[in-house]
Simulated assay, not measured.
Amino acid sequence: MKIARFRTNDGPDRLGRVNGDYLTDISDAPGVGTSLRTIVQELPSLMETINATNGARFALSDVTLLAPIDNPQKYLGIGMNYAKHAEEAAQAGIPIPQNQMWFNKQVSCITGPYSPIVKPGVSDELDYEIELGVVIGTSCRHVSVEDAHSVIGGYLVTNDVSVRDWLQNRSPTFTLGKSFDTHGPIGPWLTTADEIDDPQALIMQLSVNGEVRQQGVTDDMIYNIADQIAYLTQVMTLEPGDILATGTPSGIGAPTGNFLRAGDVVRAEISGLGAIENTVVAEG
């Protein structure tokens, strides 16, 4: 099932079940409401209700799609988790970590699947990173590798937008360079975990102005999704709605200096999950 947060004109935020080029409003169904983060833990038990709901029907082209998860507690990303990307990072002088390397993207960076990405005035090194986003479906701690997939609520497309000179030079941690406002577009909707047979076999592609910059398959991860969840939950409790960005394939702008400019259109697509598309605008 694919569930979107959306808005019509200036109306309130709603939830919709996506089918092809249309969505059906499910917000008034018993137990659903308008917050996907609130119900993500209950989705397995709500499936029958959601499928049976026949609310107002809208063409996707007639609504504004919003970031699927509203106000997550955590947005965590893993660095250099694709083998080919780690190789290109090393060529750019970035050392390859010997263990899983995690960082925070502050949740204030999150924006919608078709919202603008703002190029900050304090940098000319705005970069893109297509990543498979994992949304946690239940509160969990000390999860084994074998049980890790049972705590996943669903998947979405993310673009881990990065400000390279702040990331590598102006801050001792990744947090600032990863957390500028609008630098966390996610979506276009949540695809529930039951729809994805093998999340380690998804095809990823990112293009800028129609030119393909990144292509990869999620099986190139150094640490797979189960490894990531098991590692993180040794440290912290993951909560429903938390987002994990699981790494990016090769082709980022940093090694070549091919950074984003105002006016660029960035499209990130993952098989089975859909695509997000964001236009870069100059900070006003």
Rank of each mutant, 00 (worst) to 15 (best):
T175L: 14
L202Q: 08
D160Y: 09
S207L: 07
L202D: 11
V118F: 04
D147V: 03
N209L: 11
P199W: 07
S179Y: 11
G153R: 02
P116Y: 00
I186N: 00
Q205M: 06
N169Q: 15
V161P: 07
N159K: 12
V134K: 05
S115M: 06
Y114C: 04
P199Q: 11
T173M: 08
Y128T: 11
L202Y: 12
G187T: 08
N209I: 15
H149Q: 07
G133E: 03
R164D: 02
S115A: 12
K178A: 05
L206Y: 10
Y114P: 03
V208E: 01
E131A: 08
P199H: 14
D194A: 01
D194R: 02
M204D: 03
E131H: 05
A148F: 07
L156V: 14
G177M: 11
R164I: 10
T158A: 06
N209K: 08
G210N: 10
Y114M: 03
V157A: 02
I203E: 12
D198R: 12
G177K: 10
V157M: 04
P116V: 06
E146H: 10
G137D: 08
V163Y: 02
V163M: 05
S150A: 10
S207K: 11
D194Y: 01
T191H: 00
D147F: 03
P120A: 00
S115C: 11
P172V: 14
P172C: 08
I130K: 01
D198Y: 09
E125K: 13
I203N: 09
H149D: 06
L176T: 14
T111C: 03
G133Y: 01
G184N: 12
S123P: 06
F174M: 10
Y155P: 10
S162C: 14
I196D: 01
I136C: 01
D147R: 09
K119H: 15
G153L: 02
T191K: 00
H142D: 13
F174E: 05
E195T: 08
W189Y: 09
K178T: 11
R141H: 14
T192I: 02
Q205L: 04
I136F: 01
P172S: 13
V157Y: 04
R164G: 05
G137F: 05
R170N: 15
V145T: 09
V143T: 06
I117N: 01
I196W: 02
V122D: 03
A193Q: 05
T182N: 00
N159A: 13
Y114F: 14
